[in-house]
Design a protein around this nucleic acid. Structure first.
Lengths: 228, 228
DNA sequence: CTGAGGTCAAGAGCACTGCTCACATTTCTT
DNA sequence: AAGAAATGTGAGCAGTGCTCTTGACCTCAG
């Protein structure tokens, strides 16, 4: 079955991806050059097209891969804590996300940065993209079902109630409005903080952004779970 | 002084910028083509270099311009409310930021999206970049000096206290730890929410992201100001 | 009012890019 | 062993940013 040919193919494919990732890291996704990859691999530039049908598709593969690795990082962070330890899980997830982002800046930028107008994410990206999301959604569900009530209140209007009815169905978590609001807010704050730090919008604000981030996560956790 | 020559020059410069912005909107910053701009303007591609020294510099000009317009949008939103109306100012600022982002997606992406590795923002970007920041920093200062105490608590450790001592100096706001934490958290949440919405990471979650955003902003405002 | 100096556009050209295609070579399958 | 499938090659097309030389134009001082 897996003859010499298939093995070589897998190797070359992996080598292309490796070089591509390195290029994205050092020069940005915009400057990814297939020809340079081919040169580094001592093959004709046209040969690359036997492995990836276009530059965009190569980038898509990198994106899927990145999603997958984020998912894995967050899943294992979550799994290391007791399922009952809600705050512990939250903290682990958030810190894992930040440290993954810091050590994989290019991949993080690829996934959470500016999208290219007109670029439609292919269907194969959907499942990997849901992986990290599911972890935090499950945490929110656990928090809600174990009776946590957040220490914030949601505004009560018809429109907002209707919106959160939709959200409840969309993410499949049967939690009260305040829990949804607190949870989504916390999640947004985590991403916002990471983006600001990584993309250089708060360079002069913090001595050590990690310390602030830890305090932020701690505060958000207590807020969503409604403890102390 | 301002002869015919200077007038024509200003026109061409403006036309180039206009076309460049349109290209960034429709195809992304990565696909900005000076040659195409030149074609659209019926001039030789080399002539563009009389107006902008490089493609990067053109993009930098677009970025500075975007920063400036964000600053202006936020400043006027802030100025429309009484200085005492802290919640009103906060809400106005946050909603203005979101609506600017929605109507200027490309510019927002240019400024707050993935940075190009190796790209050093020139000095001329610093001042415009501070404009929108200053508005919200001033709001935080006003909130603190008018005795608002946020409804959250900051964790108390040596490290965190030290970090916020640094932050206090860096942004020039003499507020307690909890206020800084709440304010920075709220600001991060606003950006995080806008990023998620604009960059397509929550497409399936909300029926109308604007409704959730309004609730989010309302909740955050009450939290930072410590009201009801 | 004329001529010098500065400004601007043009066009050719370099080195690069993604991508295609006809063709040769290698490997797997029958 | 023979045919089929997979893989690599090199030329070529159309596009890119950018440079340099050349000539035309405008502005303003003498």
């Amino acid at each position: 079955m897996t003859g010499k040919r298939a093995a070589v193919r897998a190797d070359t494919t992996a080598a292309i991806i490796r070089l591509a990732r390195r290029q994205v890291e050092t020069r940005g996704a915009a400057n990814l050059s297939l020809r340079e990859i081919a040169r580094d691999l001592d093959m004709a530039s046209s040969a690359i097209y036997r492995y990836f049908e276009s530059r965009d598709q190569l980038l898509t593969v990198l994106i899927i891969d990145a999603y997958d690795r984020i998912g894995e990082a967050i899943e294992t962070a979550d799994a290391k804590r007791d399922r009952d330890d809600l705050i512990g899980r939250w903290t682990a997830i958030a810190l894992a996300l930040r440290s993954w982002a810091l050590t994989n800046r290019a991949d993080y930028g690829l996934v959470f940065g500016t999208p290219v107008p007109g670029y439609e994410a292919p269907d194969d990206t959907i499942a990997p993209a849901l992986r990290y999301t599911n972890v935090v959604v499950r945490l929110l569900a656990d928090a809600s079902s174990s009776g946590c009530t957040p220490s914030i209140e949601s505004p009560r209007t018809r429109k907002i109630a209707g919106e959160y009815r939709y959200v409840r169905r969309a993410i499949g978590v049967d939690a009260p409005d305040a829990t949804l609001l607190a949870g989504l807010s916390a999640w947004a704050a985590v991403f916002g903080a990471i983006n600001q730090e990584l993309f250089g919008h708060v360079d002069t604000v913090y001595a050590d952004p990690g310390i602030h981030f830890a305090a932020l996560v701690d505060m958000l956790g207590r807020q969503v779970m409604g403890l102390t």
